[in-house]
Design a protein around this nucleic acid. Structure first.
Length: 578
RNA sequence: GCACUCGUAGCUCAGCUGGAUAGAGCACUCGCCUUCUAAGCGAGCGGUCUCAGGUUCGAAUCCUGACGGGUGUACCA
């Protein structure tokens, strides 16, 4: 299997602090006469073990037939002088624990504070990345199941852009296929002034389905419409267009409420590939990988019992055909070098096959990374696939409205004097929903729970927003320009400082692996440190020297800026007051 | 049947691609507002990482098997 479909991580090349430490250790090893291909320091597992640790000595011991502690001693002795390291210690069987110098950290922070992007590295050469997300079916209303793709995809897009990539968003909406015949037939039947019946798409779909199932005559008309539609009948296309416009309008309402940066320009619908489908089949035939089976045009992919069907026995095309047209368009026409599909885990088999075929057919060159950014399903409290009592799903717009309303009632119980409670409640409520999605490992299934989704305690967006608001409050009270030298005076300040410096590493890691929750975990961790700092290290209170005050103000500023920037990538806003 | 995936505290989840005594939040029990926002902070309680083998200096992490959830398996998307 030459292609796994996942990008090779380039973490080692990009990491900031770790990269430097890796180089130091690599040199020390080399000075000791030991050549190692890959040196990797890790974050220390405990505070007592320093800031970083290198565990790579032990595995070297056996082949070298030496005592690991002896090697460790030698490596430490051969470590080049560096101002970043305060102390090295050998522990246990041969761990090397590394303490960074507070002065070095302070110096780095000083330069971070004068950077407009918090010293996060930006790629010199942008990679062209296609992110396919949201991409839902126009026949139905957006429900809570559509949250993940939409939110994760939007975050990844922002993250890639921030790190210097050239991102092309693709909203691959489902607007083509047999069900649209039914919907158009029903639309036609209802006649003019039909806009109102489309206000509830879910209901419209259900009603149409009832007509379809109960009236043979209607069902036949619906089938005719499918044929007419696909053969380009203008009347049908007109109705269809009207329907899609309405449905997309609903979508955009949700995007707008949610603060999703998808516009009509990002829509590249399934139907837009329609004219390409027969060419795809022709090309596949020419490349000789197509097989006829039971009258259908198929491709068998190793490791799969069943083939993917490219063309039905009646000549019709299927979604695999469309996906192949889309992947070729992205690789060849858009010239993307990384193509990410933010789609749920159920499609993983499908994407494996599509990626394999696309490679073999030459639709996608070898240097293009194809990734299925898969995510788990939504389950109910008993661990079953999520459904409401009547078998339906929770509409996304209802969830969002509930979120905002809960936020509002919670906020109004507190100080009501704050400025615009509706705006604030919107930011807090929507932030909670997004954060709930972005703070868990996307790969695992998760339990849908109103209280979890709309929680404002612990590791939530509000915790971060609250810390941000507290900092702004300090600045308001201080009322002057924040400027001074950073001096890390105690262990807590040092840890806070180091945490700030890790932002770069975290973003790069999150981007390489398409894991937004790395960012939220980091921000939560940073904020936890800040909250301790806030309790223990007064800034504007009596008895604090001017030097200390200025340094702490600088630290607070960096924390606030990092929270703001991090949340911005997650698509969550901050408030100066809460 | 076959394939993929998951199983970590009462609940919801982390655990950085093998490291040292497995971490958070919620819940529960205590303590902290005349002092920068208590939506906060501190302390406590809570674990045979589903089970059984294997690989090795070392396993929640890798391999095999069992059990249990979820998902996918030919003309829907």
């Amino acid at each position: 299997m030459p292609f796994s479909g996942t990008i090779q991580t380039i973490r080692e090349q990009c990491m900031n602090i770790k990269k430097q430490l890796n180089e130091l250790i690599s040199t020390a090893l080399s000075n000791s006469g030991i050549e190692v291909e890959l040196v990797r320091v890790n974050d220390a597992s405990k505070v007592e073990f320093g800031d970083y640790q290198f565990n790579g000595i032990m595995p070297l011991a056996k082949p070298l037939r030496r005592n690991p502690r002896e090697i460790a001693i030698q490596v430490v002795e051969n470590m080049p002088q560096s101002e970043m390291i305060d102390k090295l210690e050998i522990a246990g069987p041969g761990f090397i624990n590394i303490w960074l110098s507070p002065d070095w950290i302070a110096k780095q922070l000083q330069s971070v504070s004068s950077s407009d992007r918090l010293s996060v590295g930006k790629k010199e050469v942008a990679t062209k990345v296609v992110v396919d997300y949201s991409s839902h079916n126009m026949a139905k209303q957006m429900h809570v199941g559509h949250l993940r793709s939409t939110i994760i995809g939007d975050t990844l897009s922002k993250l890639f852009i921030f790190l210097g990539d050239d991102v092309i968003r693709q909203n691959h909406i489902g607007d083509w296929g047999t069900q649209f015949g039914m919907l158009i037939a029903y639309l036609e039947e209802l006649g003019v002034g039909v806009g109102d019946s489309l206000s509830d798409l879910e209901q419209f779909y259900k009603d149409a389905k009832v007509r379809f199932d109960s009236d043979e005559n209607f069902a036949n008309i619906a089938r005719e419409y499918v044929v007419k539609l696909q053969s380009g009948n203008t009347h049908c296309l007109g109705l269809w267009q009207q329907f899609i416009d309405m449905s997309l309008g609903h979508c955009e309402e949700v995007y707008d409420t949610l603060g999703i940066s998808l516009s009509r320009d990002d829509v590249r619908a399934e139907s837009s590939y329609n004219s390409e489908l027969s060419n795809i089949v022709t090309e596949l035939k020419e490349s000789d990988i197509l097989v006829e089976s039971d009258g259908a045009q198929c491709i068998f992919v190793e490791g799969n019992e069943t083939p993917i069907i490219i063309q039905k026995s009646d000549g019709g095309f299927l979604y695999a055909t469309t996906d192949l047209a889309a992947i070729r368009y992205r690789a060849k026409d858009l010239d993307a070098k990384r193509i990410s599909y933010v789609v749920d885990a159920r499609q993983s088999g499908h994407f494996k096959q599509i990626f394999d075929v696309a490679r073999r057919a030459g639709f996608v060159d070898e240097d293009v990374s194809l990734e299925h950014v898969s995510f788990g399903m939504m389950l109910d409290k008993s661990g079953r696939p999520f459904k409401t009592r009547d078998g339906g799903t929770v509409k996304l717009i209802d969830l969002l409205e509930e979120a905002v309303s809960r936020a509002k009632s919670m906020m109004s119980q507190r100080d009501t004097s704050s400025t615009d409670i509706d705006t604030a409640a919107h930011i807090v409520g929507i932030g909670a929903v997004k954060y709930a999605e972005l703070s868990v490992n996307r790969e695992s299934n998760y339990i849908f729970d109103w209280d979890r989704m709309l929680s404002f305690e612990g590791n939530t967006a509000l915790y971060l927003q609250y810390a941000y608001a507290r900092i702004q409050s300090i600045f308001r009270k201080y009322g002057a320009q924040i400027d001074g030298s950073i001096i890390l005076e105690d262990d807590l300040e040092k840890r806070l400082g180091l945490s700030l410096l890790r932002f770069d590493d975290v973003l790069v890691g999150a981007a390489n692996e398409s894991m937004p929750h790395y960012i939220s975990s980091y921000l939560y961790n940073l904020t936890t440190l800040f909250m301790k700092f806030y309790e223990q290290n007064p800034i504007l209170k009596d008895g604090v020297s001017e030097e200390t005050r200025d340094s702490r103000l600088m630290l607070a500023k960096l924390v606030a800026d990092t929270i703001k920037q991090g949340l911005d990538i997650l698509g969550i806003k901050v408030l100066d007051r809460l």
